[in-house]
Structures are given as C-alpha cells and as structure tokens.
Amino acid sequence: MNLGIVLALSSALAYGAADFIGGVGSRRHSPWQIVLVGQAAGALAMLVAGLLLPGNPATPDFAWALLAGVGSATGSIFLFRGLARGRMGLVAPISAVGAAFFPVLVGVALGERPSWLVWVGVLAALAGIWLVSRETASDQPARVRGALTDGAIAGAGFGILFIALAQIPDDAGLLPLAANQLIGAILTMGTATLLGQPWRPRRGVLGWGSASGVLGAAGTLAFMIATGATSLGIAGVLASLYPAVTVLLAATVLRERISTGQRTGIGICTLAIATLALG
C-alpha cells in the first residue's frame, strides 16, 4: 500500500471524526457557529504550521485555495445543518457520493487513466457509500428529503474542495491551506448574515467547533499530500469513505442503529479500499 493511499485513508478518518464532532455540536448550537469556529480554528492551526514550515506558494495556489474555501464552506454548512436535523447515518454518506464522484470525473478529464481494477474499486466504493446511506424504515419522509438535499449540496461542495486542493503543489507549503480555511470562515459569516442566521460564537461552541476544525484541517492536509502520491480519483474516493467513520462513531457513542444494509455497505467499502490499494 503506497503512501498516497495511506494518507487518503488518514484523511477519511480525520474528516469522519470532524463531522461527528461537528454534527453533535450542531445539535446543541447553531451549525453556522460550529462551522465558523471550525474554519477559524483550522486557519489558525495551518497559519502557525505554515510559518514554521514555509513553502513557495504562487498566486495560482491562492486562487485554488479561494475555490477550495468556497467548497469547504458550502460543504460544511450544509453537512452540519443536515447532521443537526437528520440521522448522521443518512446525511454524511449522501454527501460522500458527490465528494467521491466529482474528483473521479475531473481526474479522467485531466488525463488520468485508471486501470480496470481501480475502476472496480471506485464503483464498489460508490455502491458501498450508497448502501451506508440508505433510508431506514424509522425515518420520516420529509426528514429524509431534507437530509438528502443537505447531503447532496454538501457533497458538491466537498467535491469542489477536493478538486481544488489537488491543484496546489506540495512545495507551496501550508499558507494556501490557511487561506482556504480563512476564506471559508469569511464566507460563512457573510452567508449567515445575509440569511439572518446566528453566527457569532458563544462560549459553548468553541470546544466543539475547534475540535472539528482542527481535525478537518488535518484531513485537508493529508488529502492534499495524498494527491501528490496517487491519482486524484483514487484519493477522492478513499477520502470520501469518511461517512463510515461518522456512522461507526454515531453507533458507538450515540447508539444510533446500523442497519443490515449499512453494515453491508461498510463491508463493501472495506473491500473497495483493498481493491484500490492493489490497483
């Protein structure tokens, strides 16, 4: 298993844990407050790391960071809103389908030519993610529709985030990632203000948002490095396995029920990882 695959899986672990913490926090506070604190905490962490480990960023790197910030803010806002009003085992996996699908398409458009084994792994991962996200009988239809909408928009945002991050070279250092997080924070404040949503953090928000933000920033860093060691498509699919982490944490900590279909989906995702590693 090469370094790129290990880092992409590490990214999934970090993103999954960040989403779980942010989702729990969003049930107690405004999702906008959680996202804002998370983006700000991630920006501060990346800024400190970037000053300690300087790189050579160019203007296009910050342009890609701007686009990544738009995707990150959009994905986080709708994901946390969905997690706050729906089951974690439904919203997070739906978002992952888009997050996995868009990088694969863009990677092929940019000239990547995965082997047939890689395509098998990609298709298996998408099927597994979908199984993890299937509706359970106890969910109300209106609640499910809202969760699906939030998850779909979040997936598009995270897909944009993954694609933009892949365009930033390793030697650019961490300052573009700090800019990505800062832009996300600014966009969160602006959008919340326009929509009349509460975004000014309260004391109780700081712990939830900071923990989620630092973990998310770690996932972003791992993903960006992973794209330098493996293809964008493979890295995007593997990083998009984060819902399995969120679902397992929700089942362990919150005692959310994992259906038979979700268990099957997690198993298929595990097999997909092995297939992608061999490919």
Rank of each mutant, 00 (worst) to 15 (best):
Leu44Val: 14
Ala45Thr: 06
Ala45Asp: 02
Met46Trp: 01
Met46Arg: 04
Leu47Met: 10
Leu47Ala: 14
Leu47Asp: 03
Val48Phe: 14
Ala49Val: 11
Ala49Met: 13
Ala49Phe: 13
Gly50Asn: 07
Leu51Thr: 00
Leu52Ser: 10
Leu53Asp: 10
Leu53Ile: 14
Pro54His: 12
Asn56Ser: 15
Asn56Pro: 04
Pro57Gln: 12
Pro57Thr: 05
Ala58Thr: 11
Ala58Ile: 04
Thr59Trp: 13
Pro60Glu: 10
Pro60Thr: 09
Asp61Gly: 00
Phe62Leu: 09
Phe62Lys: 02
Phe62Ser: 07
Ala63Phe: 06
Trp64Arg: 02
Trp64Cys: 05
Ala65Gly: 01
Leu66Thr: 07
Leu67Ile: 14
Leu67Ser: 05
Leu67Met: 12
Ala68Thr: 00
Ala68Tyr: 02
Gly69Asn: 04
Gly71His: 06
Thr74His: 07
Thr74Glu: 09
Thr74Arg: 05
Ser76Trp: 04
Ile77Leu: 14
Phe78His: 09
Phe78Gln: 00
Phe80Thr: 03
Phe80Ala: 05
Phe80Pro: 00
Arg81Lys: 13
Arg81Ala: 13
Gly82Glu: 04
Leu83Val: 06
Arg85Asn: 12
Arg85Ser: 15
Arg85Ile: 15
Gly86Arg: 02
Met88Arg: 06
Met88Asn: 05
Gly89Met: 10
Gly89His: 04
Leu90Ala: 09
Ala92Thr: 05
Ile94Trp: 04
Ile94Gln: 05
Ser95His: 03
Ala96Cys: 08
Val97Asp: 03
Val97Asn: 01
Val97Ala: 14
Gly98Pro: 00
Gly98His: 01
Ala99Leu: 05
Ala99Tyr: 01
Phe101Lys: 00
Pro103Ser: 10
Pro103Thr: 11
Pro103Leu: 13
Leu105Ala: 11
Leu105Asn: 03
Ala109Thr: 03
Leu110His: 09
Pro114Arg: 10
Trp116Ser: 15
Trp116Glu: 12
Leu117His: 07
Leu117Gly: 09
Leu117Asn: 07
Val118Tyr: 10
Val118Met: 15
Val120Ala: 14
Gly121Asn: 08
Val122Arg: 00
Leu123His: 03
Leu123Ile: 15
Ala124Gly: 02
Ala125Arg: 02
Gly128Lys: 01
Ile129Ser: 03
Trp130Ala: 15
Leu131Cys: 08
Leu131Phe: 11
Val132Lys: 02
Val132Tyr: 06
Ser133His: 06
Arg134Asp: 07
Glu135Val: 12
Thr136Met: 15
Ala137Pro: 02
Asp139Trp: 13
Gln140Leu: 13
Gln140Lys: 12
Pro141Arg: 12
Pro141Tyr: 12
Ala142Thr: 07
Ala142Ile: 08
Ala142Leu: 14
Arg143Thr: 14
Val144Thr: 13
Val144Phe: 15
Arg145Gly: 09
Arg145Gln: 09
Arg145His: 10
Gly146Leu: 13
Ala147Tyr: 08
Leu148Trp: 08
Leu148Thr: 07
Thr149Lys: 11
Thr149Cys: 14
Asp150Asn: 11
Gly151Met: 07
Gly151Thr: 02
Ala152Tyr: 03
Ala152Asn: 00
Ile153Glu: 05
Ile153Ser: 04
Gly155Tyr: 03
Ala156Phe: 15
Gly157His: 00
Gly157Tyr: 05
Phe158Ile: 01
Phe158Glu: 02
Phe158Gly: 04
Gly159Trp: 04
Phe162Cys: 03
Phe162Lys: 01
Ile163Gln: 01
Gln167Ser: 14
Ile168Val: 14
Ile168Asp: 02
Pro169Asp: 09
Asp170Tyr: 12
